[in-house]
Design a binder for these strands. Structure first.
Length: 584
DNA sequence: GTTAGGG
DNA sequence: CCCTAAC
């Protein structure tokens, strides 16, 4: 909100502060483009569903996973089609024998122009929305959770993550590796775990949500990383869990790379990281065969091959007692995933960091050809889950968030933002939908960082070992560059007025005075804007670019700049003279 | 946490 | 708008 007070300071005349509309929150915090982040979870959730169902009827198969299965399952969903291939990842490093797994491969065989159209630009989604069950019906249901430690706060689905097990007998491994080594007891443990009414579910409250927002906002500026534990969803059958990125930096870089590959200021981007997202381009695409080897397949001319190795899913945060078994932990994660998100899978297409919304454009038109570099392409998984919770979204719809829920193209930043939004909504709306046995932490607790509050009387340390971090800090860490929001004339005017009154350098006060309600304008933003304003004011109008700032405002900028510069000089002189006067 | 300044 | 050093 802009102050409406008139001022009279120095040689500046009284200025009526303009009233600017309540500014939308930053994309990082509250810009509410709905839809989106549920899909990966949804997929997993339904997988989990079936997993659980099967578990009820196949206890006897525990511990009898097939070790070798090489059949391929192909799931087609019109165009683009999603192919599911079995991939043998070798032998699992731990004492588990893993059946065959399946990897997801997206194969775009025809241009999107053939896709059905819709008013809301969601033609692609109609074909891309792989209903989880559709997929599962063909893929099978076995998904396993494998904890993988790495430095990044992300829960990722990579390679094996999207792998699902061949339909059939091998449910067993989903409850594999109990702490005592006995699969049967593990299963029992798991059930005990989920039957244990004593384990509290702490629903996230709206109150905590607010707190979380504040914290999140605060943390957006601090993207430092801490080592965390991530959980990789992998096929129980996949032999060796493909190593995740060893440190957070890689993840971070990869994220940034995926979202804004075209940005020159993305200084360090590991090519390998890039490839982790999309492998293969040109006429040759790298496809993993059933032996885990990479084979190069020849694509038909004018055919673009995509091989999606991984999708990122939102982070989870929960606690379980240290007495819980590994198997129950896995189940807990799976259930958390399951309950977390519902809805259809939407696929977003990113091209050079920008989401591609127009489903009617051809790949060719978009510059996607068989001989181009697909390294700047990315895919995102989204859901329409957020539609269910309009109330928490309604507020502060920014000018820039006009994209419909059904957008197919979607930037990762939006995705992550939506995760935030979703979680906010989730806090309010879905208190009942979380598995009762899982301690889903409130945002407040999340904010407590690593200091986890034990659900039961167990040590924090032990808990910290099994907590999947759902740390907003890390979400921010992967959050992308904020969307550009040019200052409006009224904002510029408010800034000028405030600086005229307060002087440059007191940006916190400027912020409080003129942009208190504009959460997306930080003191640094104001400082930066002032910098550009003074620069703009100092150059001839012909050299000015972008949205033109009214000359009268620039005049005021210049005047204020000069005034405060002189003021500074005078003060400095005064200060220099001060000791002299004392001495005299 | 805020500010300044380079990128 | 980002990043970071300095305070």
């Amino acid at each position: 909100m802009v102050s409406k007070t008139s001022i009279c300071y120095g040689h500046f005349d009284g200025i009526q502060f303009p009233v600017i509309p309540k500014a939308p929150r930053s994309l990082r915090t509250n810009v509410s483009e709905k839809s989106s982040e549920g899909s990966a979870f949804e997929l997993l959730a339904d997988v989990a569903d079936r997993l659980l169902q099967e578990s009820e009827g196949s206890i006897s198969s525990v511990g009898h996973e097939p070790k070798e299965q090489n059949s391929n399952t192909v799931v087609k969903c019109e165009e683009p089609e999603v192919k599911v291939k079995h991939v043998d990842k070798g032998s699992f490093a731990e004492s588990e024998s893993m059946p065959e797994c399946i990897s997801l491969k997206l194969n775009l065989n025809s241009p999107p122009k053939d896709l059905p159209e819709s008013d809301n630009d969601s033609g692609l989604e109609h074909v891309c929305n792989v209903k989880t069950l559709d997929l599962l019906g063909k893929v099978g249901s076995n998904v396993n959770l494998v904890a993988v430690e790495k430095e990044s706060g992300e829960l990722t689905i990579r390679d094996s993550c999207l792998d699902t097990c061949v339909p059939s007998k091998s449910f067993s491994s989903s409850v594999d590796t109990p702490s005592n080594g006995d699969p049967a007891s593990c299963l029992q443990d798991t059930r005990d775990m989920f039957d244990n009414r004593g384990t509290k579910l702490r629903a996230i409250t709206s109150k905590s949500r607010d707190k979380y927002r504040r914290i999140r906002k605060m943390l957006t500026r601090y993207r430092k990383v801490t080592s965390t534990k991530d959980y990789e969803l992998s096929n129980p059958t996949s032999g060796r869990v493909k190593p995740l990125y060893q440190n957070r930096k890689h993840i971070y870089k990869r994220e940034r790379c995926q979202v804004d590959a075209a940005s020159k200021r993305r200084k360090v981007v590991h090519q390998s990281s890039k490839n982790a997202y999309i492998q293969g381009a040109c006429n040759e695409s790298i496809v993993k065969n059933s032996n885990g080897d990479k084979t190069h397949t020849r694509a038909a001319p004018n055919e673009v091959k995509f091989s999606i190795n991984s999708f990122k899913v939102p982070e989870l945060y929960f606690e379980i007692p240290e007495i819980a078994t590994i198997g129950s932990l896995k189940r807990t994660v799976m259930n958390a995933l399951k309950d977390k998100l519902r809805g259809e899978l939407h696929v977003g297409i990113l091209l050079k960091g920008r989401k591609v919304r127009d489903n009617n454009r051809t790949l060719q038109e978009m510059g996607i050809s068989h001989n181009c570099d697909l390294g700047t392409m990315g895919f995102t998984l989204e859901t329409s889950l957020l539609e269910a919770s309009p109330s928490a979204i309604q507020q502060e719809q920014p000018l820039s968030s006009a994209s419909p829920i059904t957008d197919v193209g979607y930037s990762s930043s939006s995705l992550y933002h939506d995760l935030d939004t979703y979680l906010d909504n989730y806090v309010d709306k879905n208190q009942e939908s979380i598995p009762k046995k899982t301690e889903v932490l409130t945002q407040e607790k999340v904010a407590d960082s690593k200091a986890l509050v034990p659900v039961t009387a167990v040590t924090t340390k032990a808990l910290s070992d099994i907590v999947v971090n759902y740390n907003p800090k890390k979400k921010c860490e992967v959050s992308q560059r904020r969307i550009r929001r040019p200052f409006s004339k009224s904002e510029v005017e408010a800034l000028v007025e405030a600086v005229e009154f307060l002087g440059p350098g007191r940006w916190r006060e400027v912020k409080n005075r003129a942009f208190d309600d504009a959460d997306h304008r930080t003191c640094v933003d104001l400082k930066d804007k002032w910098k550009t304003l003074t620069h703009t004011a100092s150059i001839p109008p012909q050299q000015r670019r972008g949205e033109l700032v009214p000359q009268h405002l620039l005049d005021r900028v210049q005047a204020a700049h000069e005034y405060w510069s002189n003021y500074q000089i005078k003060h400095d002189l005064k200060r220099q003279c001060e000791p002299l006067r004392i001495l005299m």
